[in-house]
C-alpha cells in the first residue's frame, strides 16, 4: 500500500519556509542580541532537514545540488579571511570594525566586519550538520 504523505508535505512546505526566514532573522540579529551564525546555521539546517525527512533524500538532492564538504571549506575560508582583512591595515588578527549607516526602509543599521565572519560560521554549521546527518542516513539504505 502506498502511504499518502499529503498532510506532511503541505505542512512542511509552509513550516520549513517559516523556520528558514526565522533562521535568517536570527542570523542578522546576532552579535549584540541572541542569535548569530551558529544559531542561525543550526536552525537553517533544521529547516532543510525537515525537507529531507518529509520528501526523500534523492529528490531534495536535485533541489540542493551542493557538495556540503566544499561549503565547509568556503565557510572556513570566509571566516579566516575576515580575520586576515584587519591585518592588512596593521591591526591584530580578528580585529573588528564597525560603522553605523542610515538606510531608507530599515532606519539606522550597524555594519560590522563580524558579519562576514558570522556568515562563514553559518555556512560551516549548516554544512556540518547536514553532512553528518545525511552520511548516517545514507549508510542505512
Amino acid at each position: 500500500m502506498k502511504t499518502n504523505y499529503l498532510m506532511l508535505h503541505t505542512i512542511t512546505r509552509i513550516v520549513s519556509f517559516i523556520i528558514l526566514s526565522f533562521s535568517i532573522f536570527l542570523f542578522f540579529a546576532g552579535h549584540n542580541n541572541p542569535g548569530g551564525g551558529f544559531i542561525g546555521g543550526l536552525m537553517t539546517a533544521a529547516a532543510l532537514l525537515l525537507l529531507y525527512v518529509s520528501f526523500d533524500i534523492k529528490k531534495i538532492k536535485k533541489v540542493i545540488p551542493f557538495d556540503y564538504s566544499t561549503i565547509i571549506a568556503w565557510g572556513l575560508l570566509i571566516a579566516i579571511g575576515t580575520g586576515l582583512y584587519s591585518m592588512l591595515f596593521g591591526y591584530p588578527y580578528l580585529t573588528q570594525f564597525f560603522e553605523y549607516y542610515t538606510v531608507p526602509i530599515f532606519g539606522e543599521i550597524g555594519l560590522k566586519t563580524a558579519l562576514p565572519f558570522d556568515l562563514g560560521i553559518y555556512l560551516v554549521v549548516v554544512a556540518v550538520a547536514l553532512l553528518s546527518i545525511l552520511t548516517i542516513a545514507e549508510d542505512d539504505t
Binding site: 571549506a73 568556503w74 572556513l76 575560508l77 586576515l84 588578527y93
Partner: peptide
Amino acid sequence: VLIPFIVGVILILFK
C-alpha cells in the same frame, strides 16, 4: 597557527 589552518581548508577544496 594560521598557515596550516588556511592550507588545510584550501586542501579540502581539492580533495
